[in-house]
């Protein structure tokens, strides 16, 4: 075998490792719950946030114009409202139906019924909401879009879904499943690496002052400053830990010896952020993406994973 053929085979092994659908089950279930929680959290404000001139907090037209200035073909709620108007529905009715579609797609994802259409609907409705409320969206929305995008393209349904039990779909190609998981893994590594490097540049993350500011900055000041002060000596250590965990993620998550501890630490970090800063949805989506990318089959060789998947 020539050297180039060996390199090609090696690259193929890296990009297309055989996988079961277990990671996809985690991603589907996690994103389904995320979409439900997100919809419920916006229930009382949905129409107020996305109404057009006069009726909303910030006009949807202005928000769409700003957030889609560079991407004019990005889907937005304005298109759906226009379509609804043409059919005789008023704006409020269309917006309510949009919210209901998002909620229902989340419920369908959780049980795994009509998984692909549900994933596409959830991705589309969520992306429309993000583009139409761009001035009001934050990191959690970005990661939810990423997760739903991969879920929509992945080889659904997984073996724990209702679809798989009802329709007896044919077995998925393990290497195609592995490819989609690999892309998600690479993406998560890129996210942490650049997030970590950006933090390392700031001196505040090394002496703990950035962590202190993050924890006391409204509206993230869930814990009283007095309580944080009582843990004063730990603050610089935690700040440095965040830098090391994020920057070291692309290396230590791949090493079999450090993978479990790194995954546990990064998930603990997100749970901590969720509880200490009130960013529950942000914490949840990050834990879901991490567990889907590196959780199932943790520490097992590819062949062991397939054997286990066939037995279960």
């Amino acid at each position: 075998m020539t050297r180039s053929a060996r390199s090609r085979d090696r690259l193929f092994e890296v990009l297309f490792p055989p996988e079961t659908t277990d990671w996809l089950s985690v991603l589907r279930l996690g994103l389904g719950l995320q979409v439900i929680l997100l919809s419920m959290s916006l229930r009382s404000d949905w129409n107020h946030l996305f109404a057009s001139n006069g009726a909303g907090l910030i006009s949807r037209d202005l928000s769409e114009a700003i957030s889609t200035f560079e991407t004019p073909l990005s889907p937005r709620l304005g298109w759906i409202v226009s379509g609804g108007n043409a059919l005789g529905f008023d704006e409020q009715a269309v917006l309510s139906l949009g919210w209901l579609a998002l909620l229902c797609s989340g419920c369908l994802l959780v049980i795994g019924l009509f998984s692909r259409p549900a994933a596409i609907t959830a991705w589309l409705m969520h992306l429309c909401a993000v583009n139409s409320g761009g001035l009001l969206s934050y990191g959690m929305d970005n990661f939810t879009t990423i997760g739903l995008f991969y879920l929509m393209l992945s080889p659904l349904p997984d073996r724990f879904s209702l679809d798989a039990r009802l329709w007896r779909s044919r077995t998925k190609d393990p290497q195609i499943l592995g490819f989609f998981r690999r892309v998600l893994q690479f993406h998560v590594c890129v996210i942490y690496f650049f997030g970590g490097v950006a933090k390392c540049i700031g001196p505040g993350w090394w002496d703990g002052s950035s962590l202190w500011r993050a924890l006391t900055r409204p509206p993230f000041n869930v814990i009283s400053p007095e309580t944080i002060i009582s843990w004063k000596t730990l603050i610089p250590f935690l700040g440095i830990s965040v830098c090391i965990l994020e920057t070291g993620y692309p290396l230590f998550i791949w090493l079999r010896r450090t993978r479990v501890i790194w995954l546990m630490c990064i998930c603990a970090m997100h749970v901590g952020i969720g509880l200490a800063m009130g960013m529950y949805l942000f914490a949840f989506i990050m834990v879901v993406l991490n567990i889907a990318a590196f959780g199932p089959g943790l520490g097992l060789a590819p062949r062991q994973k397939l054997v286990r998947g066939a037995v279960l």
Binding site: T145, F149, G195, A198, K199, C200, G202, P203, G204, S210
Partner: peptide, 23 residues
């Protein structure tokens, strides 16, 4: 890129935590 969510940066609270505004 917009549809995949990869058109945004990932440096939350980095390099430093910004001031917060009040209205």
């Amino acid at each position: 890129m917009n549809g995949a969510g990869i058109d945004a940066g990932y440096g939350f609270f980095a390099p430093n935590v910004p001031s917060n505004y009040k209205l």
